[in-house]
């Protein structure tokens, strides 16, 4: 989703530092309008509950550890050859400007050489972490194949071998293999997108020794 504005991702992050909100809003809001949510009142802020469920790049530490480690440098975004990693909106508080993936704009393609992880100096992304980012679910009421017409796009384009297969012409996700990269959601041609993606926030943290 970047590259067409004429400046590099790294520049973007730098400019974000300076201009913050405006840039983030300008880039993200026209893409997917989000219903404004009134700030919660009378709720005691508890960190665990206030974690914004962002779709992180593969290999991310547990969300709290990730937020503690990530320096918002933008190196992972620059390293991503598919332009899939973008800064989260600044209004997300502590999570603002941290790297996230918006699969409907550009999904993670599960590069075998994981350039995003390799580029992460503060090791907020680690190769020894599971690559799982989200849980993907097919919503049968929206899926063309499940509704009786023919479609096999998600299965064909899924970059993770074995994560999806066609059973009687209908796509099925193997949750034990699926990484939640979001390619299926990106390519889904159903009138209502049939893929529900739920980002994982509770991810195992790699042991300190690794």
């Amino acid at each position: 989703m970047s590259g067409d504005e004429g400046f590099s991702r790294r520049d973007l992050f730098r400019r974000l530092g300076a201009r913050g909100k405006e840039v983030a809003r300008a880039r993200l809001e026209p893409v997917i309008p989000v219903r404004p949510v009134a700030p919660a009142k009378n709720i005691e802020p508890r960190t665990r509950h206030r974690v914004v469920p962002l779709h992180r790049p593969p290999g991310a530490l547990d969300e709290e550890a990730f937020l503690a480690a990530c320096t918002k440098c933008g190196d992972c975004a620059s390293a991503c050859p598919h332009g899939a990693i973008v800064p989260a909106p600044a209004r997300f508080g502590p999570a603002g400007l941290t790297p996230t993936i918006i699969p409907m704009a550009s999904a993670c393609q599960m590069c075998p050489d994981t350039p995003c992880i390799t580029s992460c100096e503060p090791r907020a992304l680690r190769i020894e972490q599971p690559l799982r980012m989200a849980e993907a679910r097919i919503q049968p009421w929206a899926c063309l194949a499940h509704q009786g017409t023919f479609c096999s796009v998600c299965v064909e384009r899924c970059p993770v071998p074995g994560a999806m297969e066609l059973v009687d012409g209908k796509p099925i996700i193997d949750a034990s293999i699926c990484t939640g990269c979001g390619v299926c959601q990106y390519v889904c041609p159903a009138p209502e997108n049939a893929i529900l993606l739920m980002p994982l926030t509770a991810r195992p943290t790699a042991s300190p020794s690794s």
Partner: peptide
């Protein structure tokens, strides 16, 4: 953001589903 959508849509998810 997309997951934001999914999350935030949840309160009225059931309405949309009924409509569908």
């Amino acid at each position: 953001m997309n997951q934001q959508r999914a999350q935030q849509a949840s309160p009225f998810e059931s309405d949309r589903r009924n409509f569908l």
